[in-house]
């Protein structure tokens, strides 16, 4: 492959990763605040449907994105209220919402299937887009892709460099301490669930208005929500590492298309399910990396240590355990 093709490949990876990054970052915020929003796979589809339908009816992509984000936030609010204020199992509510949001999307979106609707226009950044290699890879996309790139930076800065970010991390680690500092852990968790939901909704809108334009059953975004949930763990609940995971996954997807062309003897189904065993394998490594016996055995294999270090991440200690006021 010459340089020209490589830049096209990487540009496709960056563009394809945009919705996955948005969803992964959204879930990272939510989980850092101590709440698991398991409904991602359904809420991405529901917001994709809502975004496409409103954009189609109003002929405005911007309105579509706003409605998509709001729908994502709405599902997140449901999960948060059920778990924080009604003390129901987050996993149960999240799972029910996964199935229900998906079916709701198929039901309401049915009349709008396979229609030609509005799409986000490409927006090459002047001057920067002309840089060889980096120009086409990073600066010749549309604005949701730039948004995904900017969000990684903003979120990392917010989480690790601001007082609000400290409160966000604290409420996921030790809600009682946050309570003692005079803040309401429940309100904080609800707030960050909404923030995360907005990003998940934007991810859905990005799917139906940019990455895989249009609506149908199946839309093509099915399964992404589960991938995003796994990437949060893969990234050790850190936005930058999670984004790297999203790029790796997008790379796998793009390579799958290439490999199908090169190796027609291997059935296409193998490439489609390849990320999932990989997901299990990484989760296994992450969990093993925290076990002393495993580390002792690996000690003799120095080449493996950087991998383990990269994968080691501890979940927020109050994840999934809502704060109970005394």
């Amino acid at each position: 492959m010459n340089e020209f093709q490589v830049s096209i490949l990487f540009a496709a990876v960056v563009a394809g990763a945009a919705p996955i990054i948005l969803a992964t970052l959204g879930e990272t915020i939510t989980e850092r605040a101590g709440l698991i929003n398991l409904s991602l796979d359904g809420s991405i589809l529901l917001s994709a449907m809502a975004a496409f339908v409103t954009a189609y009816l109003t002929h405005s992509v911007a309105v579509g994105f706003i409605i998509g984000a709001l729908v994502g936030a709405l599902v997140a609010v449901l999960v948060a209220v059920f778990s924080i204020y009604l003390s129901q199992s987050q996993v149960a509510v999240g799972f029910v919402l996964t199935l229900m949001a998906r079916d709701l999307a198929y039901f309401i979106g049915n009349p709008y299937s396979r229609l030609q609707g509005p799409q986000v226009m490409p927006l090459p950044i002047p001057l920067l887009a002309d840089i060889p290699f980096f120009g086409p890879v990073f600066f010749n996309h549309n604005w949701p892709v730039y948004l995904s790139l900017v969000c990684i930076g903003i979120l990392t800065w917010y989480m690790y460099r601001t007082p609000m970010g400290l409160a966000l991390r604290a409420v996921g680690e030790h809600p009682k301490a946050v309570f003692a500092r005079g803040m309401d852990p429940k309100k904080l968790q609800l707030f960050y669930a909404v923030c995360g939901g907005l990003l998940v909704g934007l991810a859905g809108a990005t799917f139906s208005l940019s990455t895989k334009p249009g609506w149908g059953r199946p839309q093509g975004a099915e399964g992404t929500g589960w991938i995003a949930l796994a990437l949060v763990i893969f990234g050790g609940w850190h936005p930058v590492k999670a984004a790297i995971g999203a790029y790796l996954f997008s790379f796998l997807q793009v390579m799958g298309i290439y490999l199908q062309g090169w190796l027609p003897s291997i059935p296409t189904q193998v490439f489609q399910v390849a990320p999932f065993p990989l997901m299990i394998f990484t989760l296994l490594l992450i969990s093993l990396a925290q076990k002393e016996a495993f580390l002792a055995r690996v000690e003799k294999m120095p080449w493996i240590r950087p991998f383990i270090q990269m994968l080691s991440g501890t979940p927020p200690s109050a994840l999934g355990k809502p704060h109970e006021a005394e």
């Binding site: 029910v96 919402l97 199935l99 229900m100 079916d103 709701l104 039901f107 049915n110 009349p111």
Partner: peptide, 13 residues
């Protein structure tokens, strides 16, 4: 001419 996924919506609700 509706989608049959209404069943899933009712069940989830």
């Amino acid at each position: 001419q509706l989608d049959s996924s209404l069943a899933g919506v009712i069940q989830g609700a």
